[in-house]
Amino acid sequence: MSQPFLSIELLTQQFPDGQGGTLTVFENASFGIEKGEFVCILGHSGCGKSTIMNILAGLAEPSSGVVKMDGFEVSGPSLDRGVVFQNYSLLPWLSALKNVTFGVKARYPDWPAAKVEEHARAFLAKVGLEGDVVHRKPSQLSGGMRQRVSIARAFANQPKLLLLDEPFGALDALTRGTIQDELLKVWSETEQTVFMITHDIDEAILLADRILLMTNGPFARVAESVEITIPRPRTRTEIVDHPNYYAIRNHLVQFLGQRSKELAGQASDGAAQRPETVTIDLTEKTEDQSNPQLRAVND
């Protein structure tokens, strides 16, 4: 098997448990992400999703294991890996535009100011922020607009890998829907590789090429990699009518509701914990639709 664009190998994270022992959050987690892929990771709180995200961003160090991007091991934060944080993390003393140019200037230090601003405005426009609104401070923007600015800042830097840490977690359902659409639009225009944490199953199905499912911790692992066999471009109103939608959704609900607990708490015995690839596709079948076709492939 050839090396994927981003490869996570034997990643282990342990913390002291406060009583002299260690708490293993996850052990020997191994998975890969291809270039241009949109991958979501789903799992219960405390399973280590955010820890994996922080390791990929370079903001945290794993206890052991490596992350390789483009064949090179990553260490420390880098402009090649952009991050959108759940709480937006905009700098409150800068306007929306200045928050984006802040990133662009860091990414392209040689660009003249006019080009930086033009680039920043273009990406703000992609998420629907145009005109005077770009001169407002974050405190004068709604939560949805702040997250749009944060997304524009990340995309404007054109990182090799974009990490989204529950970007819509703090937004109401309607705003969330609009921004998901905008995210899809920007993503399809930029062919960005995206790795996203979410709690929302429908959001994951709408956005992702592939969903990684994590079991509960301790000793959490990425148990399955579910392919989303719904063709793009997708819209939220159309995908629910696709024959695969509810089959995939039910599979995810079953996993999170039941199997994430059953599979939890197993030490790995040193072996790499690779996810099983699960493909659910009902479109090829026309006669016997009583069972979803479930094909497990170990790679």
Binding site: L59, G76, P77, S78, L79, G82, S89, A106, R107
Partner: peptide, 19 residues
Amino acid sequence: DWVNVARTHELGPFRTAFT
């Protein structure tokens, strides 16, 4: 969070301090 923004943008210690 703001320090992390500086870190993910690869700002050096002086630029982090000033910006």
